[in-house]
Design a protein around this nucleic acid. Structure first.
Lengths: 250, 250
DNA sequence: GGCTCCAAGTCATCTATAAGACATATGATA
DNA sequence: TATCATATGTCTTATAGATGACTTGGAGCC
C-alpha cells in the first residue's frame, strides 16, 4: 500500500500528518464513489483488506467504522460488509419528513403531473451548478397521504445526469433517489434545505385544493452526491393545514 | 467493576448480551446525567477509568467514542476528556437554524416582551408531560438580526424546573439552554420540531412588522433532557420574507 | 427428500502493548 | 525575574492476537 507514515517511518514532522486509518478510509470511499464496488455488493473481508492495504485489522476496522457512520456501507455480522444501497423505504425515511396532523410519519402516494426537458433557467443554473444553457429535466408531482393531497413537488435535474429518464415509459418510482442510484450511479449523500412560509399562488392552490393565498410551507432542497456536487433541485409546497414538516435535532 | 461478561466468563447464552463497552458507556452516562461530574469538569484519565472499571483501555476508549459522538463529552489531546458544556455559541449554532435572505447564518439579538407565571394550559400539560395544574413560566421574546425583526418566540417551561428564574433581575441571556445547564443542571440533549406555515394573527403581525395574514413560519419545538424528559416548549414565528429556516440532512 | 449438525468464513468484542502528538507544569539557567 | 528545556500526563494512532456471535453451506444421517 502506498500509505505513507508507517509507525516505523513516522511522517515528516511537518504540518501534514494524515492518520493511516483516514488514508484507508479515503481509499475505500474513492473505490465506492468511482463505482468499482457497486451498491449492494460486498466489500472484501476485513482481514483481506488489511492484507491488501498492508495495515492492521484494527486500522481497517476504524476506517470502516467511519464509512458506517457516514452510511456508505452496512456491516452484517457473520455475512460481510456491503456498499449501502438506497431503498425506497430508506430514502423515504431519511429524506421525506412529512407528518400528518397527529404527528405520525406519512407514507405518500404520488401522481406525475408533468415531465419535460428544457434549457435551464438562471435559478436552476445557480442551484445545480450547471453551465448556462444546459438542458434540465423537469418533473412535477402531486403527493397525497391518507386520501388527502399533501404536497406539490417541482423537480429539476440535469438531463445529462439521467439519460433516457425523460422518455421513460410508465410511472416513475415513488422515490427517485434510489432510481438515481440504481439506474444512473448517482448516490444522494446529503441534502440542504431552506424552508419558508409562502402564500399559495392560484395554480398551486388549485392543485392542493386550497384557496389562493393560503399559507403553504415551501421546502427548497438541493440534493448532493458523493463529490458534494449538486444533483437535484426540488421545491415542495406542503399543505400545513393537514400536514407538517418534522425535524429532529440531535 | 460489576461488569458482567468478562470474555473469560461469557454472558449467559440467552438473549441478553450487553457488550462491556456499552456497560461502561452507560455507567459514564449515568455519572454525567446524575451530576456527579459537572459540565466543564474533566473526567478521570482513560487509564484511570480502565483501572477503576477493571476493563482494558480500548474498551474505555470505545465507550468514550460513543459519548463523544453523542456530544456528552469533549476530548482534548494532551489535556483530558471533559463533560460537554453548553456555550452560547454552541447552543446557537446547534439549535438556532435561521438564515438571512442570502442564506447566511444569522446571529440574533433578543428583546424580552413578557415574563409571567401561571397555571399550565392543556397544551402545555401535554407538551411538557406535566401534572395538570402545574405552574409554568412563560416568556415572550422578539429576536432581530441585521437590524430587522426576525422572529417572535413563545417559551414555556415548568416553574419547578427553573426556581427563581421568574424573578431574575435584568436581562436573560441570548441563549437560554446554557443558562438551564449552568444554573439549573438541565442539559438539553435533543429537540423535536414541527414546522408549519401559518397566517400571522394581528398581534404577531404587529410585533413582526407585517400585515396581518402574512404567511409566517411556525416552528414548534420541544426540547428534551438527559432522561429524554421534556424540558421546554417553544413556538417561534419567523418572518420568512427576509429570513428562512435552514436544515441540513446528512 | 428432508433434516440435523458441523465447519468455515465473517464481523464483533476485548485485551495488551508501544510509540507519537500535544498541553502543561517544573525546574534550571541566564 | 524571565526564559527555555525538560518531564509528565494526557489523548491518538497503530499493531497483534484471542475469543465470541452470527451466517451460510455442505456433509452426513434418517
Amino acid at each position: 500500500m502506498a500509505v505513507v507514515p508507517k509507525p516505523e517511518a513516522p511522517s515528516p514532522p511537518g504540518p501534514t500528518f494524515v492518520p493511516l486509518y483516514q488514508q484507508v478510509r479515503d481509499i475505500l470511499v474513492h473505490r465506492i464513489a468511482s463505482g468499482a464496488w457497486r451498491p449492494g455488493s460486498p466489500l472484501p473481508s476485513e482481514p483481506r483488506l488489511a492484507a491488501e492495504l498492508n495495515v492492521s485489522l484494527g486500522t481497517v476496522r476504524k476506517a470502516l467504522d467511519e464509512l458506517v457512520s457516514g452510511r456508505l456501507v452496512v456491516r452484517q455480522q457473520g455475512r460481510g460488509t456491503f456498499v449501502a444501497e438506497q431503498t425506497p423505504d430508506s430514502a423515504l425515511f431519511h429524506f421525506f419528513r412529512v407528518v400528518d396532523a397527529a404527528g405520525e410519519r406519512v407514507i405518500p402516494t404520488h401522481r406525475e403531473l408533468h415531465r419535460a426537458c428544457g434549457p435551464a433557467t438562471e435559478e436552476e443554473v445557480a442551484r445545480l451548478a450547471l453551465a448556462p444553457g444546459s438542458e434540465v429535466l423537469r418533473l412535477r408531482r402531486l403527493r397525497a397521504a391518507g386520501g388527502r393531497t399533501a404536497l406539490l413537488e417541482h423537480i429539476s435535474i440535469a438531463t445529462a445526469l439521467v439519460p433516457g429518464l425523460a422518455d421513460h415509459e410508465g410511472a416513475l418510482p415513488n422515490t427517485l433517489y434510489d432510481l438515481y442510484q440504481q439506474q444512473f450511479g448517482l448516490t444522494i449523500r446529503r441534502a440542504s434545505e431552506t424552508l419558508r412560509a409562502a402564500a399559495a399562488d392560484p395554480e398551486t392552490a388549485d392543485l392542493l385544493g386550497l384557496d389562493a393565498g393560503t399559507p403553504v410551507l415551501q421546502i427548497d432542497r438541493v440534493a448532493y452526491g458523493f463529490e458534494d456536487q449538486p444533483i437535484e433541485w426540488r421545491v415542495s409546497l406542503l399543505d400545513t393545514r393537514h400536514f407538517a414538516y418534522a425535524n429532529e435535532i440531535e
